[in-house]
Design a protein around this nucleic acid. Structure first.
Length: 887
RNA sequence: GGGUGAUUAGCUCAGUUGGUUCAGAGCGCUGCCUUGACAGGGCAGAGGUCAGCAGUUCGAGCCUGCUAUCACUCACCA
């Protein structure tokens, strides 16, 4: 027999087993008669790298899918990647810049060629990394949001929504990212409180010599785009100025002073400069008062020609320049610090610019209702449940979704315009006629129908330049991965999926929209449950991020602790919804656990079996106890899985394996040094270890598979991964559990005594227990004493007390010691105990003498209290006896 | 401003219908332990008025209200 190393070396076996599973086809699923269990992966960015969030997320998914597979379900975990439009395009642009190539010098086709090249090179790295973690995805199903099937789906539903009138093109105030130079959806803008300066600037009243109105602004550079000053209609300070005109400083443009209830009298000076082009509220005021819109910014955030001053300067630079110029000219009357919310682009982190432009939107109100209802009525279950509130609020106040992006990497919008019409979406003042179709031909057909011009040809049409928001493809994911618009067999079998595992940070960006898409196109929920994970943070509670450099290298962690160790580490502290503070220590714990299990294997493998040996009572009792414990743990684990309490599940197993199996069971069952094992003990141990492997497998797949095969030789295909977990047949024998529990309590007391008196474990100890029927029965149980002897090197006998007393459970035992007893210490200890029990009984008596308690409480509870009182009193009696004896 | 959640041992957190010793786990700390599975191990120990106040109840870590501190999230105050 080959020697097993003293420590578990994950590196030796992980790749081997992963390859074995793949070769055996265990990951692959096709529809059959079994009940399906389906998970679709939240597709990571195609060029992304594995980070702690992925580890958390995918460990959970893998655990669930492996467990389902072992429960006999047809488990299917569909992997894939997301093209991540804006993020990937940014990476490609950077890469090109390093090569000295500007995006603006490339045609769309040339750029896309580079982007695909990049995708082919880096795409899939992350999937490879998932394999290191042990993810049992059906790799034959790997999907990509921009592959042919998924692209067709995206284009198809765009056209479908358009034809249903649930998607439109319109000119709206949107969020503009000046760095990426694209529009963003509301959900892609993150607001943060930032300290800024509030500048007070005075405008001269037209036609007066020295009359002024002072406004407050954080953005003096936009003064150049002012087209009004607004005051509150009921603000007495400015009543006399309403209807007059003010003069914009430096450029001397005349603008009206208007009254609008939007203005907050208490804020700043109570007078608001109105710049309709650069603020959503100002824009709305502008609409109400028919104000001119002057856009003083270019798409890249620099000042435009329309500003007249500081043209070409970046907005931040222009702000300072403007402030200086205003100060110099005497227009600034003061400044103060202000903390307010600034919106930044989720991707590029730059300050987002409100901007008026022509974009495509989904009419969300038209599709939201079924999705809202499904969650509120628990047709879809959220874990944790409290996210339902967040969801409801967002759904009830849902705003239209801006889905067009001024990027090239993505699905180009299937809308066409006449070539003759202006092409810029950004500043278009006219909304062109639009023709939507799956193909250019379809669009042409549409164009002919709408315009009545039969002479139109393909060359008269040009396609919309923009691409669709990445999430516009992701929201179809649970349908599109099964090619749900074409392949009925697949979608009918796998859909709806069972559980979605994702972070709560994308509840709106992704989860809510998937639910809407599910009902819109399948008339059915996309998943039964959503397991929201928390964010992985570092010990200082900071979110892990590349910029902070506080995210450990995921692959290095796996190298260091083994995949199973890392999986344990992340799972052990990851209750649904709660943020987890990641600490490598946890992986160490997982690694140590692996090592513990590994050494249990080494122990068992070192045994010789001698079939002629008889099976003793102690071992038989330990086996019965262990079987009962297994049955109890099995049902507990079942409950945990049902409620997605995976961290509790893994903790349950940890303590079962470590404390019960290793520390107690194996200690009892193992042959004495130099002896062989009897056949029955050996077989039972093997069986138990197998069961443990099965239960542990979903959490720690590699080591359990290895042990499974080390335990005995298996026929091909008989792998732990596909071993069935059936409810443990044996009953939980309450009496056996309780009795054994008592033996363990006595054991602890003995060890404590040994510790206290510095007695060697080698020295056998004799215990005397009182003549209580329960105890007599217990210690007469075949094997009970033998177990105690093995665990504590003690024997026991019924009788009257002499020696050092100790309490085990509710009974008083005596230990016969061969050495001098420290009377003082014993007395002190017993008196403390006595005082405790006196108080205890006193409180119980109070309770029992309370008529209301006896009348109202459950009879069981009252009975228990009576028992408690009796126990307490007997302890007191015993203690008093012992004390008297010592004196 | 709206909403949500949190507050339990030095640290990170469990505690799943109020009812035995329910006040817990892991880490950290202290002491002891090196031949036989495992020092990545074993045994034992110290430590908490369950944030505070009031209420409901026979009974509250758990239910209710208020207060304090914190975190997160949504929202168009320049």
């Amino acid at each position: 027999m080959e020697e097993l190393s003293k420590r578990y070396n994950p590196g030796d076996i992980e790749d081997k087993w992963y390859q074995h599973w793949i070769d055996s086809g265990h990951f692959h699923s096709t529809p059959d008669d079994r009940e399906p269990f389906t998970i679709v992966i939240p597709p990571p960015n195609v060029t992304g790298q594995l980070h702690m969030g992925h580890i958390l997320n995918n460990t959970i998914q893998d655990t669930l899918i492996r467990r389902a597979r072992q429960e006999g379900k047809n488990a299917c975990w569909v992997p894939g990647t997301d093209h991540a439009s804006i993020a990937t395009e940014a990476k490609v642009v950077n890469m090109l810049r390093e090569k000295g190539i500007k995006k603006s010098d490339l045609t769309r086709e040339e750029f896309l060629a580079y982007a695909w090249e990049w995708t082919d090179k880096y795409g899939g790295i992350i999937l490879h990394q998932l394999k290191k973690l042990g993810a049992s995805c059906d790799w034959e199903r790997t999907a990509f949001t921009m592959d042919e099937i998924r692209s067709e789906a995206v284009i198809g539903i765009f056209v479908d929504l358009y034809r249903k009138g649930k998607l439109y093109r319109g000119k709206r105030m949107v969020n503009w990212d000046p760095t990426a130079q694209t529009v963003l959806s509301n959900e892609e803008v993150l607001y943060e409180e930032e300290k800024t300066m509030l500048y007070k600037v005075r405008y001269k009243i037209s036609g007066t010599a020295d009359e002024w109105i002072t406004i407050a602004t954080t953005r003096p550079e936009t003064i150049l785009g002012d087209t009004a000053i607004a005051v509150h209609p009921e603000d007495p300070r400015y009543a006399h100025l309403q209807g007059k005109k003010a003069i914009v400083p430096l450029i001397n443009r005349e603008i009206p002073i208007i009254a609008d209830a939007y203005v907050d009298i208490a804020f700043g000076t109570g007078a608001l400069k109105v710049t309709p082009a650069h603020d959503i509220n100002d824009y709305e005021i502008g609409l109400r008062h028919q104000l001119e819109v002057i856009d003083v910014l270019n798409p890249n955030g620099s000042m435009s020609e329309a500003a007249h001053l500081f043209v070409g300067l970046d907005r931040d630079v222009a702000r300072k320049a403007m402030f200086e110029a205003l100060t110099e000219a005497g227009f600034v009357t003061g400044t103060e610090e202000l903390i307010h919310n600034v919106g930044r682009s989720e991707r590029t982190r730059v300050v987002v610019e409100p901007r008026l432009s022509l974009q495509w939107f989904v009419d969300m109100k038209a599709i939201a209702d079924p999705a809202l209802r499904a969650v509120m009525e628990n047709e879809i279950e959220f874990y944790p449940e409290n996210l339902k509130n967040t969801y409801r609020y967002w759904m009830e106040n849902i705003r239209d979704w801006c889905i067009s992006r001024q990027l090239w990497w993505g699905h180009q919008i299937p809308a066409w315009y006449l070539v003759a019409e202006p092409s810029s979406n950004l500043n278009a003042n006219t909304e062109n006629q639009v023709f939507v179709g799956l193909t250019a031909e379809e669009a042409l057909h549409e164009a002919k129908r709408i315009t009545g011009r039969e002479d139109l040809a393909l060359s008269d049409l040009r396609q919309d330049e923009d691409v669709l928001d990445t999430w516009f493809s992701s929201w179809l994911w649970p349908i599109s991965v099964f090619d749900g618009w074409k392949d009925q067999k697949e979608i009918d079998y796998y859909y709806p999926t069972n559980v979605l595992v994702t972070g709560w940070d994308i509840i709106f960006l992704w989860v809510a929209r998937m639910i809407m898409a599910g009902y819109e196109w399948r008339g059915e929920k996309p998943f039964q449950s959503v397991y929201f994970t928390g964010m992985v943070r570092d010990k200082q509670r900071r979110k892990m991020s590349k910029q902070l450099g506080n995210s450990p290298d995921a692959l290095a962690l796996i190298d260091q602790f083994g995949a199973d160790g890392v999986r344990y580490g992340i799972m052990a502290s990851a209750p649904a919804g709660g943020d987890i503070l990641f600490d490598e220590k946890l992986c160490e714990l997982g690694r140590n656990f692996c090592n513990k299990v590994w050494n249990a294997l080494r122990l068992i493998k070192s045994w010789e079996v001698d079939p002629s040996l008889s099976h003793d009572d102690g071992r038989a009792l330990a086996i019965r106890w262990m079987n009962s414990r297994l049955a109890a743990v099995d049902s507990e684990l079942r409950r945990h899985f049902q409620q997605f309490r995976l961290s509790e599940g893994v903790t349950t197993l940890y303590s079962f394996v470590w404390d019960d199996f290793c520390s107690v069971f194996l200690e009892v069952i193992k042959p004495a040094y130099g002896d062989a094992s009897d056949q029955k003990s050996y077989d039972a141990t093997l069986l138990l270890f197998e069961e443990i492997c099965k239960l542990l497998h979903p959490f720690m797949p590699f080591i359990t598979e290895e042990i499974w095969h080390q335990l005995k030789s298996r026929t091909r295909g008989e792998d732990c991964m596909i071993s069935l977990i059936t409810p443990v047949s044996g009953d939980v024998e309450k009496k056996v559990l309780d009795g054994f529990e008592h033996i363990l309590t006595v054991k602890s007391s003995v060890l404590e005594l040994r510790n206290q008196y510095q007695l060697s474990p080698k020295e056998s100890m004799v215990l005397i227990f009182p003549s209580e029927p329960e105890l007599i029965q217990l210690w007469n149980t075949p094997g009970a004493e033998s177990v105690l002897h093995k665990l504590a090197n003690a024997t026991c006998a019924e009788g009257l007390g002499t020696g050092v007393s100790f309490l085990a459970g509710r009974y008083q035992y005596y230990a016969v010691l061969t050495i001098e007893v420290d009377k003082e210490a014993e007395l002190k200890r017993m008196k403390e105990e006595l005082a405790y029990y006196l108080g205890f009984v006193n409180s119980v008596e109070k309770k029992l003498s309370n008529e209301k308690f006896v009348a109202n409480a459950h009879p069981d509870v009252v009975e228990k209290e009576r028992q408690k009182k009796a126990d307490g009193e007997s302890k007191i009696e015993q203690l008093q006896q012992s004390i008297a004896q010592l004196n």
